[in-house]
Simulated assay, not measured.
Amino acid sequence: MPFQLSDEQQLIQRAARDFACGELANNAVALDQGVGQDIFFKNLKALAELGFMGLNIDPELGGSGAGSIAFSLAITELAKACASTAVTVSVTNMVAEVIQSVASAEQKAFYLPKICSGEYPAAGFCLTEPGAGSDPSAMRTSAAWNGSEWVLNGAKAYITSGEFAGVFVVWAVTDKNAPRGKGISCFLVERQTPGLVVGPAEDKMGQKGSATNPVYFDDCRIPASALMGELNRGYQVALGELAGGRIGIGSLALGVGMAAMEYARDYAREREQFGQPIANFQAIQWMLADGFTELEAARLLLMQAAYLKEANLDFASQASMAKLFATEAANRACYSGQQILGGHGYNREYPLERFARDVRITSIYEGTSEIQRMIIARKLLA
């Protein structure tokens, strides 16, 4: 792959950086403290208007058509300022790509312009359940056909943007007698559909500005036209789209890790102990050198995975490698940054404390690090 970004990719990266520095950074602390939601929604709308809610979506359907590399670059820049906003953008893009990939022409024409334009503040990806996390084939949410419509019953867990998503892609068992993972279908369900109930937001350790909710379906009736893709073939769709989502979460982790390392570097230049800046001490220099080197390696793995995806080549293993390495490296970077700040790193007056909380989930959601290792090993041993 070429290492030089195209003019368009550089433009998108710069636009994301400018918006992050000018609009997101000032509101990140307020969001973390549970206030500033009006500004959060205003920023989501502005990001949609800039084209960031459909970066890999066909322009004829309202998207930017910029590709997977541009998507990765944008998420990294947004996450350096506000991980809560970045995860909302990442998941919304993932939902849009699911719809573009498998939906009917009518479904695409109806939903994608609403997502890309910001008419829907966000979109939800309803796969995880209380008893089906790393193993989504164990899901129990069901969709029964009653002769004229589908009736959804069940519960989904940890749904990003649940309380303000305009539409959800929902996976449900449609053939209870099929082998495990074979009788699952996916549906498009609008937020205001009777029987769809969004529970209270989870009280999380980090990324507090991004609502994460349980979503319940209680005799939720949806028309035949809500089925997306082939009946009983939805599990394969979920696995394919999760690979793309891992590029987004890896890119988000990279952004948070870079923010931590850059802040720690600047702090080390100014902080004096023993009569000189602590940046002069080898212990600090090596923490910075290791952190920046690992994050650069993460960036290259992410670019490789995004390049393969954009070229319509097999990228699942590379996406898992990138997500695994980027999230683990970003966690180490945030803790190294805290260590460089010493006691200040543990104080909420400084951003390292928030970075460390925000980055922790990245090695858990969109597939834990352990699941990524399983995927990588399976590919190696095939």
Results as ranks from 00 to 15, higher is better:
I364K: 01
L227S: 06
L239M: 12
G245K: 05
L47D: 07
A20M: 07
E163S: 15
A172T: 00
E310P: 05
S210Y: 01
Q4R: 14
T92G: 00
Y365D: 02
F164V: 05
Q10I: 06
F40V: 01
M321L: 13
G118C: 04
D218S: 10
A224K: 14
W145R: 00
R354N: 03
R14L: 12
A103P: 04
S320R: 09
F3G: 14
L381E: 06
P200Y: 05
R17H: 09
A264H: 09
T76A: 09
A66R: 11
C126N: 14
V35T: 14
L31K: 05
V91T: 14
I375H: 04
E241Q: 10
L380Y: 08
E106W: 01
L308C: 04
G240W: 02
A316V: 15
A224D: 14
L239R: 13
G337N: 06
Q273E: 07
P277S: 15
L352K: 12
K379Y: 04
L313N: 08
R373H: 02
A329M: 10
L381P: 11
M261Y: 11
Q276R: 12
E296N: 11
P130Y: 05
G51R: 02
A144C: 07
Y307S: 13
A306Q: 09
V89F: 00
N331Q: 10
N56V: 15
Q107C: 13
E230P: 00
L242S: 01
Y307F: 10
G34T: 12
I69P: 01
Y111C: 11
A70H: 08
D7W: 07
S137N: 08
I278T: 10
G343A: 15
A356H: 08
A253S: 13
A377K: 13
N213V: 00
D314T: 11
Q273D: 02
S336D: 15
C220T: 13
L61P: 03
V95A: 02
F164A: 02
W286H: 12
R348W: 11
V170W: 13
L324Q: 07
M287I: 09
V197Y: 08
N177Y: 07
L112Y: 03
G62I: 05
Q207F: 04
S210F: 04
L242M: 13
E230M: 04
